[in-house]
Write a protein that binds this DNA or RNA. Structure first.
Lengths: 146, 146
DNA sequence: AAAATTGTAATTGTGTCAATTACACACATT
DNA sequence: AATGTGTGTAATTGACACAATTACAATTTT
């Protein structure tokens, strides 16, 4: 049940912005690091900006900036901002309602699937972009300019 | 996120087998209930049989049967038997190792993603096919022949 | 022997995501 | 003001995965 690569790339992007706190970073540079296309990054930033996590500065010397302290952006927030579809997908075409199982399976399964998703989300809520950035700084042996 | 429908359809299938305990059910009938193709069901049953959850009886009057008590088949087992790909997908092409973030992001993210997946799986481990079948029986106002 | 059913391979159809292209719009610098 | 830089968004294309479908060999029951 694969999620798209959006979530991971979005966290990657935010981590770079956290490390370059204050300095605008161009989508081209972000794309270079994530090994993808600038437009893909801009599309992600669009969602992140809607959620209030980033802003953009147009024109020469412009780029993306964090709009909020990285310690106040949980990975769950990022997940929700850029990942839209359901975690579990049900039957492609609705099950046959003539059958008791077909008639009830989705409603019966729903609470369990929701609980599982909630458990996953609770874990993502515990970690922030600041945590990720700090860990990267440690591995790279440098300090994040506060 | 076009995730696969395999997991839900597999649970659907096992619930039917649990309710028809002892009686073989043809892939055609299972497919009719799940509103899909018999071959799709047979492919799922192939994985479930490999995992030791079902057996098949060939020939006229044949079909699929549970090989284990439904109370001994957790949804997590089903999930693992029929769903192969990773829950979180990382970058499509590897991030740029010239950048500190690109070089470390995947390793830094891995523990969190693993913990999130484990939390999800723990929930799926709590519920069995027997639970699902019982809930369906209750909604359909009938009893499962033990 | 004949009919029924599974198991599996191969092909086709469909949909989603990512890459790419294109361009209008906004800002900054001169 | 004019020009260059960069974002924002739409549209197209490519790649890929899943499901549907077709086909058929193998096995079992009647």
């Amino acid at each position: 049940m694969p999620t798209s690569t959006r979530f991971v790339v979005a966290v990657h992007t935010l981590a770079i912005l956290a490390i370059n706190e204050g300095r605008p970073v161009r989508s081209e540079d972000l794309a270079f690091s994530a090994n993808t296309n600038p437009t893909v990054i801009r599309s992600l930033l669009s969602g992140l900006a809607d959620a209030g996590f980033t802003t953009a500065q147009l024109g020469a010397g412009g780029g993306a900036l964090l709009a909020r302290k990285p310690s106040h952006i949980a990975l769950l927030d990022v997940y929700r901002a850029v990942e839209d579809s359901e975690l579990f997908s049900m039957h492609r075409s609705p099950p046959n309602s003539v059958c008791v199982v077909g008639r009830n399976i989705q409603n019966v399964l729903r609470p369990t699937l929701d609980k599982a998703q909630a458990a996953l989300e609770a874990e993502l809520a515990c970690v922030t972009v600041a945590d990720i950035a700090a860990e990267i700084a440690q591995r790279g042996d440098f300090r994040i300019p506060s």
